[in-house]
Design a binder for these strands. Structure first.
Lengths: 242, 242
DNA sequence: CGCTCAGTTGATCATTATCAACTTGGGTGG
DNA sequence: CCACCCAAGTTGATAATGATCAACTGAGCG
């Protein structure tokens, strides 16, 4: 693909950015030494996305892998009549492209404005051959993703609407903590519709459950898409299915 | 764990079984040469399970990895009140233990009588360090599993009961073909209850949908837990959500 | 200042769950 | 070898969760 070889952005803009990257320890890059990182830097290109901008669509040739550095993305699959299932939300440090087929098996869109590191698939593969710890790390990440996906199947197949929302709020809080961000109040950059399509519900149901949680004093909505978790114990019990 | 060091079974029973193993090409072992296979044989022990016998439970220390050689298993997660979600069915060639945590994140049980190869986790890990192609293969398998899990999330979150069952029947047919087994009629070793817990439905609903499919001429039930798919086109359309 | 889109709330509907009765079939003991 | 037994499966009646349809509110933005 010709666009892999575009000119680098202005030098000052990306001079050794990896070394200072705050999400490096969370991501695949965390297993490389500063020396080794330079090889990664040679093949990486930054990508910026605006609100709702599409990164790729299901079926596109999977020429790149990505690393989220800022913002939040949704990845989803569609049925022909428009029904949508959101497979996951991606935050800084998350890697995009573990499923290694020739075409993407899902679509990816920015939720708010986001930035990513983009790696040409072939060149990243070469680096993986050269630095086997990258492969090990990818396997670890794939394994984690798998466990998360299995938990989500339990949620989608067997939890009630209330249990689903409680599970999601706690998941977001835990993931924020893992990124060393504020885990309460949590940030909810996605819309009610996104939440619904992630939990296998409708916008209306999600809205109603939010209202219930508010009136029960379990959460409160704060400005700027923030949700404060006020009764962790009840939320946890709901999420775990008691 | 002490039981990793039990005496080997009688020599005649497992003398170089891997070389002749019919599922080897499907599984992790397929990437090793005959020479390299001998190292794997040294650490493997056969396991036999009877109907409904449990291999391990969610939360047990994850001391082993497994490779299914015969039969069919179900892996599932439970909620405290007994609600069950079946995460997947395992057939010959499937690998069990990709999620590498210290304890199993789900339970595994035989559906009919089954046999597996059991690898002590540490020793398998040593072999992976020694033969990096094993790691590559594991990553490939994890990546496939992830894609399957994502497809299942779409099913659980957004498909109707009919669409769910059609999807499952076709999946079983495709997987049988991949194992070079008869893909029509398909074998359904699991109960209606298993199917329900896999699709996020109840036994009754599964049964009703089966009846509908039969009366529409889309399938017919044959002796010995076999289902003949008679109208692939309609099944496929249903499964894909048209 | 109004326009648009996200979110909320209400009324009604539909799919699937639940509860219950009945049938079938495979396996076992007489 | 047959008859019985129990688990699995089917079918029916009713209920409930969440979907759908519709109206309204409010926040952000040109």
């Amino acid at each position: 693909m010709s666009y892999q070889r575009q000119a680098q952005p202005k030098p000052g803009q990306i001079s050794s950015p990896c070394a200072a990257c705050p999400v490096r320890p969370l991501s695949i890059c965390g297993v490389l030494s500063l020396d080794e990182l330079q090889h990664l830097e040679k093949i990486v290109r930054p990508v910026s996305l605006a609100n709702s901008q599409c990164l790729f669509q299901e079926g596109d040739p999977a020429d790149h892998r990505f690393n989220v550095t800022e913002g939040c993305l949704r990845i989803y699959k569609l049925l022909p009549d428009g029904r949508r299932q959101i497979i996951g939300f991606l935050f800084p440090g998350d890697f995009l492209g573990l499923s290694i087929t020739d075409s993407y098996a899902y679509s990816a869109e920015a939720i708010n404005s986001a930035t990513l590191c983009r790696f040409p698939r072939n060149q990243l593969q070469d680096l993986i051959e050269r630095f086997p710890q990258l492969e090990k790390r990818l396997l670890g990440m794939a394994s984690d993703e798998l466990a998360i996906a299995q938990e989500q199947m339990l949620l989608l197949g067997r939890k009630s609407a209330k249990e689903k929302l409680a599970s999601m709020l706690l998941m977001l809080s835990r993931r924020a903590a893992r990124r060393i961000q504020i885990d309460n109040p949590i940030d909810l950059p996605m819309t009610r519709n996104d939440i619904a399509d992630y939990l296998g519900l409708t916008t209306e149901t999600v809205s109603r459950v939010f209202t219930q949680f508010k009136t029960n004093g379990m959460i409160s909505l704060e400005p700027d898409h923030k949700v404060r978790l006020r009764d962790m114990e009840t939320l946890q019990e709901l999420a775990e299915g008691f």
